[in-house]
């Protein structure tokens, strides 16, 4: 092929390349990068108290105001509490179920299907189910706790976040179980055999073989689970609408309220940027650790 000809072909290939990437790029441009950049502009402008007035450029004033507001601090604290309530429990439960169902025994297929089953629910379905279970009049949870007719767990600021967390953990059990099972399958059998030959009993094998071999999965699940928990919205909206008394007003829910209740997208943008930074840090931590693990493996 002559140079001229191949130059034409290369140009044709390049053109095709751009054409294939373009549809995705347009969508990303409009629905990811534009709104992302817009957040920074929104953060620098204060929304007027009455609709119709022009937005006012205030520099970093609004950012400082929001970041130092007690409302934001409370929301952030609640979000972190929510993460701490859901992620570790979810991982431990998933791991427990996965270890119990890992052995090749008769009937394990049924247990595995049951433990995976909650992935077939949605956040909304799980929330509606648990809302009825927590309901002071008809809820079985309240009935069994002997709290029928009392202040419902969702109306009590002391228990509302826990109730939301229980709902979330249950909905995520399936995913957690699937991830942990996949991790367990990655542990080579000969390691167990070696441990068995060395005379390690079940508990020792778990602590000295399974857990260390599973640590990448555990770490990974912790980070990903945290990212997901930071983005929680549906269960809050259905179960508590951020209440009672803002006790479950997590970051994303407060952003939603800022925009769709208070019409203040300036404040929302500052919080959104904060959320982005948190997720970014978690992602970087994960990439760093993954990188280090790769170099260990060599």
């Amino acid at each position: 092929m002559s140079a001229q000809r191949s130059a034409r072909r290369r140009a044709k290939d390049a053109l095709l390349g751009y054409a294939l990437v373009l549809p995705s790029l347009v969508v990303f441009g409009v629905f990811v990068f534009y709104p992302f950049v817009k957040n920074f502009s929104l953060a620098l402008h204060r929304t007027p108290p009455f609709p119709g007035l022009p937005k006012k450029y205030v520099g970093l004033d609004q950012v400082k105001d929001v970041l130092s507001s007690s409302e934001f601090h409370k929301s952030l604290r609640i979000t972190i509490e929510f993460v701490m309530l859901t992620v570790p429990v979810g991982i431990v439960l998933g791991l427990l179920l996965a270890v119990l169902a890992h052995k090749q025994l008769r009937g394990m297929g049924i247990y595995r299907t049951i433990f995976s089953s909650t992935v077939a629910t949605s956040v909304a379905a799980a929330s509606v189910i648990f809302w009825t279970l927590f309901n002071p009049q008809i809820g079985l949870v309240t009935y069994w706790m002997g709290r029928s007719g009392d202040l419902g767990v969702l109306e009590d600021p002391k228990t509302a976040l826990i109730a939301v967390a229980v709902t979330t953990v249950w909905q995520n059990i399936g995913l957690s179980f699937i991830l942990m099972s996949a991790g367990l399958q990655g542990v080579p059998d000969d390691l167990y055999e070696a441990a068995a030959v060395d005379g390690a009993d079940g508990a020792r094998r778990f602590w000295h073989v399974t857990l260390p071999m599973l640590s990448p999965t555990l770490f990974f699940s912790a980070v990903v689970g945290s990212i997901m928990a930071f983005q929680a919205f549906g269960q809050i909206d259905i179960l508590t609408r951020g209440g009672p008394d803002d006790a479950t007003n997590v970051l994303v829910y407060s952003i939603y309220e800022d925009v769709f209740r208070a019409g203040n997208d300036g404040v929302a943008a500052v919080k959104a940027i904060a959320l982005f930074v948190i997720v970014l840090i978690l992602t970087i931590v994960q990439l760093r650790v993954a990188e280090r693990r790769v170099s260990y493996a060599r």
Partner: peptide
């Protein structure tokens, strides 16, 4: 794009 959660951009969208 994977590092920008939808929850960060939904209101502008």
């Amino acid at each position: 794009t994977m590092m920008i959660p939808f929850e960060v951009v939904f209101f502008t969208n």
